[in-house]
Design a protein around this nucleic acid. Sequence first.
DNA 1: GATCCTCGAGTTCC
DNA 2: CTCGAGGATC
Length: 696
Amino acid sequence: MNAASDQARKRAAFLRAELERHNYRYYALDDPEASDAEYDGMLRELEKIESSYPHLRTADSPTQRVGEKPLRQFGTVVHSVPMLSLLNAFSESELAAFNRRISDSGCAGNIEYSAEPKFDGLAVSLRYENGEFVRGATRGDGASGEDVTGNLRTVRAIPLRLRNGAPSIFEIRGEVLMFRAEFEALNERQRVNGEKEFVNPRNAAAGSLRQLDPRVTAVRPLRFFAYGLGEVVGSELPESHSAVLDWLAELGMPVSVERAVVQGLDGALRFYRSMDSRRARLAFDIDGVVFKVNSLARQQELGFVARAPRFAIAYKFAAEEANTIITAIDIQVGRTGTLTPVARLEPVFVGGVTVTNATLHNEDEIRRKDLWAGDTVIVRRAGDVIPEVVGVAKAGPRKPADQFVMPSECPICKSAVIRLDGEAAARCSGGLFCVAQRKQALLHFASRRAMDIEGLGEKIVDQLVDRKLADSPADIYQLRVKEIALLDRLGDKSAQNLIDSINASRGRPLSRFIFALGIPGIGEEAAKVLARHFHSLDSLLLADWSAIAEEKKSNQRANASRKRRGEIAAPQILEGIGPELMASLEKFLALAQNREIIHALAESTKPEEVIAGTATVLAGKTFVLTGTLPNMARDQAKEMIESLGARVSSSVSSKTDFVLAGDLSGGKLETARALGVRIIDESGFMELIGKIRGGT
DNA sequence: GATCCTCGAGTTCC
DNA sequence: CTCGAGGATC
């Protein structure tokens, strides 16, 4: 090796070490030593050396952070140790309950917790082999995520090489996020370049990390903080979680300086309050704090529930509230003619998004909260998603016209508005005469759970109805490519796609067809019951409702006496369909207009009739689903359960046999725990059905 | 007649 | 997700 090359090698090694040291000071210690210009100077010098002596270029060189070639799509990484989710607490009493559960499991005195802020970013896993960063992945469903190594390589807060003493295999779990100030600056650049701005730092971080082109990620100001470990080979673990964090910091990982060790519930509450009050002054968004039992030995004893550790909890901050002005209270007309008042709001940024509309449910609700147009109101995002008007912060001018009055005629079709005694909702009496109801009926017909016609959304339905191309669902099947292609923003290609999906919807199961008709009170469940009972559309149309009502009554009486004698009850006729729903069916099916539509639809769609015969492996069991399952869609799970003869219900009660949980928190789980209902996760479910199938 | 359980309907934003 | 109302049950 010649002298020049040897010198270059030394210089390159020096520059690399210096650059990583500056990254460390900047991102991990928040104590920069070099100026940006000095840093850039060193980086350019290193690039020059590496281009003159390509063999000196190493994978962990800071020059490799600029971003590789764009990918077609991300690969999948199976996490060697699953990335779990956390139990949540939303109130002091829930946190106290968590603390009590830990004490009750045999822990005398105050429990020591490691406390950290809960970053509002994206969880990722970083894998280091012999100290070198080799792979990074998103959390995904916890079991496997997307391979975003190329993107994470560009994040300067993530060391490409750990300091000496790193275990041979070392997986670090942490959060990728964006600082608020850097997010603002990014948005400013986006604005200047005429590109789309991001709503909040979280979305910006998520969007940047999921870029297929790492060169884009490279110019986004992403940060990283570590908070835990995955797979570790080649080293003993420290005794406590706080020691793990200290260890990560020593190895050069950014770890939040806000971390602390607290004693017992009181200490935890103090930490929570202090973070809550300092929240606005932090450089980044947090949505709560996380407490973990500090002793790793105790953690191991406590183990896991479903997919969350029992030793940790996220105590979330109360939903953020904001004040804004109601500019107007409008009326929306639903599928069944329900008139729903909606508050139009002066756009306000709350809970991470800009809110402009909020439902006010009904007239009584408006009276109860005493809302007038022009009032300044408090808005929050209830249950994390749906905007809710909490109440009046300051009354507006309140001119007589500002008070909400439910109109006496439908704002769309001018038909009379009727509010039945004891009902909360006011309804337009126009039926299919009302354009709004016709449009909603079409949308419902095409919706995913009904006939599932992809591409037939609001925009298209509006135009089809306004241009008199379709009045009822039956007309959809008569549409021609030529007609659709004339609609705004639709060419021949999209028109053909729409026709294809309309054709694909022919022959759907009878239950979907019945549901799609949109008979008041007949939802998915009732539609299934009807399909199973009548088997065909013809027999449903011929049904003699008063006879069925009679038969049902006598069946119920017979069952009651069987029960008294301790016998097993016979299956109930049309279970869940009582007098009201029968009346609704009778009325709907008697209308000549509806019958015409149904006959025309039956002609073009030929719904698949139901052949009797049911599986019974899980007969009589009731399941409730909650959260997202790692490997199957909710609907899939539901179908599977039903095909095995069990029922899927939407809320947990003492009659529930199993709660199949994907996530680890939420009302359904709380109820299930309180009632002692068995909670299983996806793998538990697979085991269960395997066992039952195998055992019978 | 009361109570518990379930389902249906409406809803927001990206 | 939440509310309200219908249905089942005692």
